[in-house]
Design a protein around this nucleic acid. Structure first.
Length: 262
DNA sequence: TCATTAACCGTCG
DNA sequence: CGACGGTTAATGA
């Protein structure tokens, strides 16, 4: 397959661009609480890569030799299904550690990572991760926090997938994306992430046509609006109401942009 | 390539 | 039966 084709220039961490890796990694929650010296030490074993849109960073089932951190751009994580369709496990923005679980336990990747746009990623070899955990225990705490957040999100997503119909799943997808990537403009919330109808469908477990069917209705009702693959939610209360959020018991706030304080 | 529409059809409550 | 949602096909941007 494509493998790492599309993965472009390698920038060794040691050279003059070492700074670049440091800057890229410093924003990652995994190393929060560390000073620049510590981050530089970790970054010395890492490298950044420039990748084009639609590049595969790694494949589900492939052996994992380190951690990919998205430092610029957009990535989605996918499960391939038996019938050839794909299920989008999540959408990610900088500075997300991609499939942290695989990177930590060294077992094969749980999903395939594909860039949506031209992006930059940093790769930290497993040996560096092991050193990091030994030398800086706070990173262990950070990793636990990140993994817990992932587990909670997967748990809710699984419940939504089983309990809701197509409308509900698409609506939840939109609200979740708004939580994760929403920026407020005027009275609306813009999902700052270029998404095709197919992407929404892959995330919601429906066909494109169904995603279009549902989203067209929402547009006609003036609840959402799409402009060049950027979705705006004009009326959150009405979307919530259309979804019966009032009676839904699922704790979807776990998709919130900023993790709950603590 | 992406978005949209519509007719059609099978499943299930 | 009727709502729902997948399939297929056609069309336009």
């Amino acid at each position: 397959m494509l493998r790492a084709s599309g993965v472009g220039t390698t920038v060794p961490g040691k050279e003059r661009d070492g700074n670049r890796v440091v800057v890229a990694l410093r924003a990652c929650a995994l190393v929060s609480g560390l000073d620049d010296t510590a981050v530089a030490e970790i970054a010395s074993g890492a490298a950044t890569h420039q990748v084009k849109a639609n590049s595969h960073l790694f494949e589900e089932g492939e052996n994992c030799t380190g951690l990919w951190v998205l430092t610029s751009g957009r990535v989605r994580l996918l499960h391939m299904m038996a019938d050839g369709r794909q299920h989008a496990v999540g959408f990610h923005a900088p500075t997300t550690p991609l499939d942290l679980g695989a990177a930590l336990d060294g077992r094969p990747y749980m999903a395939t990572a594909v860039t949506l746009v031209d992006s930059e990623v940093a790769f930290v070899p497993r040996t560096s991760l092991v050193d990091m955990g030994r030398d800086y225990p706070v990173t262990i705490r950070n990793a636990i926090q990140l993994l817990c957040a992932e587990v909670r999100q997967r748990d809710i997503a699984a419940a939504v997938g089983v309990l809701k119909d197509a409308r509900g799943r698409i609506g939840c997808t939109l609200l979740q994306l708004a939580r994760q990537f929403g920026v407020t403009s005027d009275s609306a919330i813009r999902i700052n992430y270029p998404l095709t109808r197919q992407h929404i469908a892959d995330r919601s477990g429906v066909t494109v046509e169904t995603a279009i069917r549902v989203m067209s209705e929402l547009q006609q009702q003036g609840i959402i609006q799409t402009d060049n693959q950027i979705i705006q939610i004009l009326d959150i209360p009405r979307l919530s109401h259309a979804l019966d959020c009032g009676t839904c018991q699922l704790e979807c706030s776990v998709f919130s942009q900023r993790p709950a304080a603590g």
